[in-house]
């Protein structure tokens, strides 16, 4: 190993090969399967099927997969917003706490994260069931029972529960590194508590918010287990649709849906990045 110009090639070689073979080539296969039929002849059918296939739901004709797609996006956006609203104050409270308490709270946040998400989701299913612990609790208090399981609300609860730590941690790690002098300076210059939050802390925490949004939105838009368990299989999300086609061995249509999802997510994430970047460098923050 001499200090030649190509010094990086030797150690990076295996990874370069690996990334090409197992990251890039598989994505090419997604596109290849998406645009071919069962005999691998070129076709647009899988893509058009996604946009045009119809079915009858409650007497109305609907676009099956478009409906599934919009529902996935809607529930994922609701869950992401809820995670942000619930998680941001928590991250803030954690960052302001004493160092010992911070460590303890970190452990508390990470335990549910490390528990398998299938188990966590299943636990919610047993809680929210009509005969579950929530309803026995409510009737013990003399209150009316609620029917949650099998509704979109139950799926949102599951998503918020599963992904909340992924929102809290990135925001917290940015806030914990924030220079206290900046906050003091803002106060000295006449900002009140809310002003400091809006004009200093919030813009500075934007990178954490962005990665939090990414880490919640992407798994919740593509999940297929949460909707099966908490939605009682009554309505499909895009992840369920892909998984269903995989189980049915319809690989070409599964690939087409994966391809469309991938393209749409790229656009959505580019938009999210743009919006958050604007709020950091935009006029209001300055």
């Amino acid at each position: 190993m001499t200090r030649s110009k190509k010094a990086g090639w030797v150690p990076a070689g295996p990874y370069t090969l690996w990334a090409a073979l197992f990251i890039l080539v598989p994505l090419v296969f997604v596109a290849y399967y998406a645009f071919t039929d069962n005999s691998f002849a070129f076709t647009f059918d899988n893509i058009t099927r996604f946009f045009t296939a119809t079915s009858v739901v409650e007497g109305r004709t609907v676009h099956t997969y478009m409906l599934i797609f919009w529902r996935s996006l809607k529930l994922a956006v609701i869950s992401t917003v809820l995670c942000l609203l619930l998680g941001y104050p928590l991250a803030y409270a954690m960052a302001r706490a004493e160092e010992k308490t911070q460590k303890f709270m970190m452990i508390l946040i990470m335990i549910p994260m490390w528990m398998n998400f299938l188990i966590r989701t299943y636990a919610w299913m047993t809680i929210l069931q009509d005969t579950g612990i929530l309803n026995s609790f409510l009737s013990a208090l003399g209150l009316r029972k609620v029917h949650i399981i099998g509704t979109e609300g139950a799926v949102v609860i599951g998503m918020v529960y599963d992904y909340l730590p992924y929102m809290v941690l990135p925001i917290y790690s940015i806030m914990a590194k924030m220079d206290d002098k900046l906050l003091e300076a803002a106060r000295d210059l006449g900002c009140n508590g809310f002003g400091v939050l809006r004009r200093v802390i919030f813009p500075l925490s934007m990178p954490g918010v962005l990665s939090g949004i990414t880490m919640v939105l992407i798994p919740s838009v593509s999940t297929f287990y949460i909707s099966q368990k908490l939605g009682s299989g009554k309505f499909f999300l895009i992840g369920d649709a892909i998984e269903g086609q995989y189980v049915a061995n319809n690989l070409h249509f599964a690939a087409a849906m994966a391809f469309i999802l991938m393209v749409i997510l790229m656009v959505v994430m580019a938009l999210v990045k743009k919006v958050t970047a604007n709020s950091v460098y935009g006029g209001d923050a300055l």
Binding site: P26, V30, L251, M262
Partner: peptide
């Protein structure tokens, strides 16, 4: 190029990483 390749499995949904490898 390598940095972009490294980002792909991090930002792609797991279901797409799984499906893409399975297809190959």
């Amino acid at each position: 190029a390598l940095n972009t390749a490294t980002d792909i499995p991090m930002t792609n949904p797991d279901i797409i990483t799984g499906i893409s490898l399975m297809l190959m």
